[in-house]
Nucleic acid binder design. Structure first.
Lengths: 358, 358
DNA sequence: CTGAAAGCGCTTACAG
DNA sequence: CTGAAAGCGCTTACAG
């Protein structure tokens, strides 16, 4: 690092005190217009850029927010979208976002977690957006560090709380949480589907995963409401990371079973894609023979032919809301915020239609 | 912010000077084992975490690297992978990565660019990984700020330099650049294709985009080598952002033309997917009637049926190399590094086969 | 409206 | 091996 222009250099050249330069920089207090003009000119001439570190030390703010992506092998489109939304919101503020990936053992005691620098040191970030899949032990560790954070609630796995809670509760009720609720959009989708005359509707997805379980529950609710027997199918042999493979195997099992099926609801678009592929291979047309529906509206949802009817999840908005809530929390020095719940949207495309009449 | 434990508190409790606490913290110099023990114990008891801001001010390093994604509407899988690689490498160092999205006018004068905070202020990041699509004016602006940066070279658009340079040059020869070169893998793929007996091979993609142009050039070279007439097709009417749509329209134009075609090389996987969809709709089978090939190996490349033969681009490795090069550059205070070129890999899947004999 | 001074939380010569 | 002191680059009472 070379020696750089500091506020002192500007003050000397402009023949003012450094306090005045600081005032000009921050448009704080009244500064004589002529002086301001002169200081501005020197700043420009010298190419002076204020050093954030000095400001941070006295302001006791890092102007930095951490996007902590937990327990992910890679960044999926959902979390990519959330990060993008976080950045977009912050770009209009005086904060930036630092991205950290972090894996931890869900069963480790909070105090034995080996935390990343951003948590084990002070002064790297003011607060945290905790995304990915998370467990209570990390939150306990963060609480004991007195860290300010906002949790992305959909993928929070708390078996104890789940068990204690009534089974039909929404995801997470704890404070400082942002999540999306696609239940309404799912109800709408299933209502429409049933309205078309479907009676043999299957749900494909691993309900061990909370994000699939929530969707399965709404599915059960809707089937019950319309006195349709719910049929859930999994694919134990499939690679749990490859949803397309999962959907394909699950669908193959439905077809092999010989049981009636007029519609398959995939737990997400990847599973729906797999279902579509399995049907195609089996010579069944979509939606002529069987309707296929998905969730998430990933960009590739339109890659099936016909494109997938699905539920669009508000990825960017989740990011924006997380960032907004966190900044609000920091401003109010930690006061709890009410949870933010974002809705989802039914995206109607070509993969559904009335059931084939036999 | 509440008042927090500082190094002074630790020093007082441990009955030592703050310098000694600092030494214990950094394992610097010799410290009496007993003293060290005592200080460690106090640190633990008080839950003291060192404040990075203090350290940064004196060390004149922000311990932060900027991932500057330029001119992107959203984060595509490639850049997501690069960011992931950057983070992975940095997690083993004392740096973190801050993510910033930035749009600018390619034609604006360098000094008139409105730069994001991370560039207009000092002390937010030590150096920059410039990714996305970039133009010379930003680099000029960064040079005049004396900013340390590494450029992702593949998407750098420099029309003047391009024109001046011999047409068959590789992407970017400038220093401090990381790029991938999938030319070898493409040659291998086309060699294999031609070896199967293909004679009517089309290339689909907009060669205005440098990433497609490079692939088109290798395509031309290979066609020339084997005395095959190169056939390039574009889709002027398509949404240039929706590659699948682009590929579909381009392929439709080939089919409408009535000209012979046994293989279609998409400029990327999205285009290849579109080609596949168009062929399917036209009742042509892949690869029975026509072979389809792509580039990039995005996760959804395996969503076509049969899955796509393509060229895998080393996204994570690009990120790792960028981070590594930048840290090296910072360590050597700006000394230029030789460019890093990463290779790509042919991924053989089911979408190709010998041409149908008429 | 303005400047000298204190102080944010560290590291690092320097002198013991 | 250890501590007092200087100093990194700012902001902000405080006193004019």
């Amino acid at each position: 690092m070379q020696p750089h222009i500091t506020i002192k250099d500007v003050a000397r050249k402009a023949k003012v005190g450094i306090a005045t330069v600081s005032r000009v920089l921050n448009d704080a207090q009244k500064v004589d217009p002529a002086t301001r003009q002169r200081v501005r000119e020197v700043i420009r001439r010298l190419g002076y850029r204020p050093n954030a570190t000095g400001r941070r030390l006295v302001k006791k703010s890092t102007e930095m927010v951490s996007f902590l992506l937990c327990n992910r092998e890679f960044m999926n489109p959902f979390h990519t979208g959330v990060l993008y939304g976080v950045e977009r919101y912050l770009s209009g503020t005086d904060h930036d976002v630092v991205f950290t990936n972090f894996r931890y053992d869900p069963n480790a005691a909070p105090e034995s977690l080996v935390l990343p620098r951003i948590l084990s040191h002070r002064g790297i970030a003011d607060g945290f957006i905790v995304s990915g899949t998370n467990y209570p032990n990390l939150l306990a560790a963060m609480d004991s560090l007195d860290a300010a954070y906002v949790l992305f609630g959909n993928n929070f796995v708390d078996k104890q709380a789940d068990a204690a809670r009534a089974a039909d509760q929404l995801p997470e009720r704890r404070l400082d949480t942002v999540y999306y609720d696609d239940g309404e959009a799912e109800r709408q989708m299933l209502e429409r589907l049933i309205g078309m005359g479907h009676k043999h509707i299957w749900f494909a997805g691993d309900v061990e995963m909370p994000w699939f379980l929530r969707r399965a529950r709404v599915y059960r609710e809707m089937m019950h409401k319309h006195s349709i027997v719910p049929r859930e199918i999994s694919a134990p042999g499939a690679d749990q990371r490859d949803y397309a493979d999962y959907g394909e195997q699950a669908t193959a099992r439905i077809l092999e079973s010989g049981e009636p099926v007029t519609a398959i609801v995939g737990g997400n678009d990847g599973i729906a894609y797999g279902a579509w592929r399995a049907l195609r291979r089996a010579g069944r047309s979509v939606p002529g023979d069987i309707t296929v529906l998905g969730f998430d509206d990933v960009q590739e949802a339109s890659w099936t032919d016909p494109p997938l009817t699905t539920v669009r999840v508000p990825t960017h908005d989740v990011g924006v809301a997380c960032a907004q809530m966190l900044l609000e929390k920091l401003k109010q020095s930690g006061a709890p915020q009410p949870p933010i719940v974002l809705g989802a949207q039914l995206i109607e495309r070509g993969s559904w239609g009335p059931p084939r009449t036999f």
